[in-house]
Design a binder for these strands. Structure first.
Lengths: 253, 253
DNA sequence: AGTTTGATTTGACGCAGATCAAATCATCTC
DNA sequence: GAGATGATTTGATCTGCGTCAAATCAAACT
């Protein structure tokens, strides 16, 4: 994989030229403000597969933006098992949960060679109190994360294994598309185990589902390569059939 | 509804005199700043059981602080079923997920007669860019919500019905205690159905668990009244026995 | 007091998905 | 290229909890 060797020039790309700007923080800022934001952003060299961006318990100094690659965040149980909390694609910001404790509450490691931008949070806060739209942008960012988590809670609390995986794949697909990649064909950078952990399923269940979706002509699966053949069908599977499960309770009035 | 007529004196209590200040927003602000915050807070008259604080889709103008009572937030599925997203005690702030869309992404209704403070978000943002500690406080608040959701995700994704209920009860107990109420004895303001929805369980399962925990001498349950008899034992149940479930995967290096 | 209505409890049963186990396959090392 | 290592698939079982059903109980209404 010669393409893995990323030139340092690429890393130096500033926020104003970054194709991720609309996904990342600068959205809605004036060019002047982006300049100021750019001044506080640090860009480290690429991390290799398995490297940590931060670990649970690390003191909190920075937020991190995925620039290229994929990051998983996870927590550890006492016995060393891990619970995947999220997968993060380019343009997504991680470390938001650490603001309140001044300490990272989960670990983050890259699933493939990845470039990460560092945003020193103190500087960011200072900047935010001067740039109103940046402050607003940050609030929105945090708020969005809450919405996402809430949706995930609904998914885990109500749905079947099939719905979970279908929803997961459609979500991934959408996010790939937003980044300008193909919507119906992509590589999974995470293992079946990690998908299972994220979705609250055993890895065997994930594997079986892939097989079944392939048999049904909805997917083509070849190891980590996924092709969505029948998107509509997949979307149907992702939607919980009305009233099919418990714990959807009727409004009480 | 004679009880609707509550003395307005009670409502007028300002932030600076509010016993919830340490839980709510003013924490860490100077008396002067609290005064300024106080000026933008609106206090409406108490809501009655079943009343909505806001509904899914409502335009977003305010954050809301529970002053007394309990609020549940929930989303609705197309078929009218509801998915409980959270239960909120005095001092807790709701509506945070609406910041990003300018529209509430869930509904909130009170489970018992409750007083709610309104915080116009525009004003709050303005104030935050002048008062650095308020800005920081808001970031922390949002961040904390993310942490809470993440923990909930772990709970739903990994654990058994028993662990979920035990964790839920201990969490409620802790929050009651933080508010100066008894830790080991309290009333549930929500139904079994709502608990089930929140924990991703059928209401029958919740009911059976209450019965069992009572038989085991861990709880005393009488309808909505709960007494924790053996807190240590309950805490043991809340902790996932190491390696007892799937989807805890080993670190891959 | 009797009736209605909704909440809760309790029982019986079935299934989705976890668990256990073993085969296959891909990668990497030497 | 043979062997080792970890990921994935596939099969066979087992079980926790959802589902259905019916009884009990509490609060509200007449």
């Amino acid at each position: 994989m010669a393409s893995r060797i990323v030139s340092f020039e690429k890393i130096k790309v500033a926020c104003k030229n970054c194709t991720l700007a609309t996904l990342c923080l600068p959205m809605g800022l004036t060019p002047d403000d982006v300049e100021r934001l750019d001044a506080i952003v640090k860009r480290s060299r690429p991390l290799q597969k398995g490297d940590h961006v931060f670990r649970n318990g690390d003191p909190f100094h920075n937020l991190y933006v995925v620039k290229t690659g994929t990051v998983k965040t996870y927590t550890e149980s006492p016995d060393g098992g891990e619970q995947v909390v999220g997968f993060h694609l380019p343009g997504e910001i991680i470390g938001l949960d650490a603001i309140q404790t001044d300490q990272h509450g989960c670990s983050a490691r890259v699933l493939e060679t990845s470039a990460i931008c560092e945003l020193p949070f103190d500087n960011l806060e200072d900047l935010a109190s001067h740039i109103h739209s940046l402050q607003h942008q940050l609030f929105r960012l945090l708020s969005k994360e809450i919405s996402r988590d809430t949706e995930m809670l609904s998914l885990l609390s109500k749905s079947t294994a099939e719905e979970r995986l279908a929803t997961f794949l459609l979500d991934l697909s959408k996010r790939h598309q937003q980044r300008g990649f193909a919507a119906n064909e992509f590589f999974l950078s995470m293992s079946r185990q990690e998908i299972g952990s994220y979705l609250g399923l055993a890895l065997e269940t994930v594997s079986r589902l892939f097989t079944r979706l392939q048999e049904d002509g909805i997917l083509r699966v070849e190891r980590k390569h996924i092709e969505i053949l029948d998107r509509d069908h997949l979307a149907v599977l992702a939607i919980k059939p009305a009233g099919s499960r418990a714990n959807t309770c009727q409004a009480s009035d």
